[in-house]
């Protein structure tokens, strides 16, 4: 009897440790999801729950390092026994890289949207390319079912590493002409990601319009490129206006 009680106690202790480990692992997953903007907390306010992480400039670059970091071409294998090279840099269009996987639940909504055949509502100059990890890290049969026939899909862990992708789903918008990343981030639905892409496009257009307006105003005032007045420091301007 004493032996039975002892065995039972050991089993209960082991199960307790196992359950505690599972709960801790679950909490860690939820925390990571929350960091990626896909928090599953049902008590969170609706607005917060729906809010994705913005397609933001990269924060790991030194100040003044340029736009948002360099973009990279996609090189990997396709789902039809093919080798794939998709240029992202040095092309006339922009590329929206959708980093998805065959196993992530949030990705399923994106796969379904892409396969639905509906208009994705992206600007004409944006090409959508799906990038998964290498086939050894994915389920090839699941990918074959999920991937739409008319969308470029490349399996390339090297591309994930090149863009520093933290997890899936994740989106990177790259400008082919400048070879720079315009923005990156994640979302829980295609509508959110599309909205952020359109916003980024609008912001870029506003920047260009502002630049053109300033150029026009300077030219109208007789200030042309290379004019010394464009290179005055704040101290020089202040000194000129000092009584």
């Amino acid at each position: 009897m004493a032996v039975l009680v002892a065995v039972e106690t050991v089993v209960i202790v082991l199960l307790t440790v196992l359950v505690a480990g599972l709960l801790r692992s679950h909490a860690e997953i939820l925390r990571r999801l929350h960091e990626l903007g896909a928090g599953l907390d049902p008590d969170a306010p609706a607005g917060e729950r729906e809010r994705p992480v913005a397609l933001r400039p990269r924060g790991d670059l030194a100040p003044g390092a340029g736009a948002s970091g360099p973009a990279h071409d996609v090189v990997g294998v396709g789902l039809r026994d093919d080798a794939v090279h998709i240029p992202v840099v040095g092309v006339r269009h922009r590329t929206l890289l959708a980093f998805l996987s065959s196993g992530c639940l949030t990705c399923r909504g994106f796969w379904d949207t892409f396969a639905s055949g509906a208009d994705l509502g992206l600007p004409d100059d944006i090409r959508l390319v799906v990038v998964t990890k290498d086939l050894a890290e994915e389920s090839p049969s699941a990918l074959a079912e999920l991937a739409p026939a008319d969308l470029p899909v490349a399996c390339s862990s090297a591309t994930w590493a090149a863009y520093g992708v933290p997890g899936s789903p994740y989106f990177v918008l790259a400008d082919g002409a400048t070879g720079q990343v315009q923005g990156e981030g994640t979302g829980v639905s295609w509508e959110q990601v599309r909205g952020l892409v359109l916003q980024a496009t609008g912001d870029a257009a506003v920047d260009l319009r502002n630049e053109a307006r300033i150029d026009r105003e300077l030219l109208a005032s007789g200030i042309r490129p290379g004019d010394p007045s464009l290179y005055r420091t704040a101290e020089q301007i202040e000194a000129e206006h000092r009584p």
Binding site: G78, D81, D82, H85, V89
Partner: peptide
């Protein structure tokens, strides 16, 4: 960047897209 598959290997020029495939039967 080199693209290799099915006994072929080639350097893809910058800005070019490339595929090396074999049709399913």
């Amino acid at each position: 960047m080199r693209l290799s598959a099915h006994g072929l290997s080639l350097a893809v020029r910058a800005g070019w897209e490339g595929r090396v495939l074999r049709r399913a039967t």
